[in-house]
Amino acid sequence: MSPGSVGTVATQHLDLPGSLPLDCGRSLRRVRVAYETYGTLSPARDNVILVCHALSGDAHAAGLSPDPPPEGTRDGFAAAASPKGIGWWDGMIGPGKAFDTDRFFVVSTNLLGGCRGTTGPSSTDPDTGRPYGSAFPVITVADMVRCERAFLAELRIDRLAAVAGGSLGGMQALEWATSYPDQVNNIVVIASTHALQPQGVAWNAIARESIMRDPAWQGGDYYGTGRAPDAGMGVARMVGHITYLSAPSLAEKFGRRLQSGGDLRYTLHEPEFEVESYLRHQASSFVRRFDANTYLHLSRALTYFQLDLPAAAETIMARTLLIAFSSDWLYPPSASEEIFDALRKSGKEAEFHLIDAPYGHDCFLLEEARQTPIVRDFLTEGRA
Rank of each mutant, 00 (worst) to 15 (best):
Y331R: 06
E274G: 07
I355Y: 06
P17W: 06
F378I: 12
T267W: 11
D127S: 03
I139V: 14
A247L: 14
G226R: 02
A311R: 13
L321W: 10
G94C: 10
V235Y: 10
G166Y: 04
A34S: 06
V31K: 00
S122K: 05
C363K: 04
A173M: 09
R213L: 14
P310N: 00
L258E: 10
T40R: 15
R74K: 07
G232D: 06
V184F: 13
V145D: 08
A350K: 05
P70E: 02
T119P: 00
H13N: 11
P181K: 12
I206Q: 08
L50G: 05
L245T: 09
T73H: 09
L322G: 03
W176H: 04
R288F: 04
T294L: 03
T128Y: 02
M212W: 01
S108V: 10
G224H: 05
G170T: 00
D328L: 04
L379H: 08
E349Q: 15
W217N: 04
K97V: 13
S326G: 01
Y38P: 05
G262K: 08
R149K: 11
A205E: 11
T124V: 00
I316F: 13
T40K: 15
A161C: 12
P373Q: 03
D15M: 13
G57C: 06
S167K: 05
P21E: 04
D143T: 01
D23H: 09
Y244V: 09
I339Y: 09
C363S: 11
Y304W: 13
R74P: 07
A301M: 00
M92V: 10
P3M: 14
L366D: 00
I206P: 03
V375D: 10
G170F: 10
T315R: 15
G57N: 00
H361R: 02
G360E: 03
M233E: 04
R237Q: 11
W217Q: 00
G234T: 03
L343V: 08
D158I: 02
E270G: 11
V51D: 10
P43K: 10
V106R: 09
V6T: 15
S249R: 13
E368L: 14
L366E: 03
V188W: 10
R32E: 01
I49E: 11
G240Q: 03
G360I: 03
I316P: 00
V6L: 11
L366V: 01
C52R: 13
R26A: 15
R289F: 05
G234E: 07
G76M: 05
A350C: 09
P17C: 02
D182N: 13
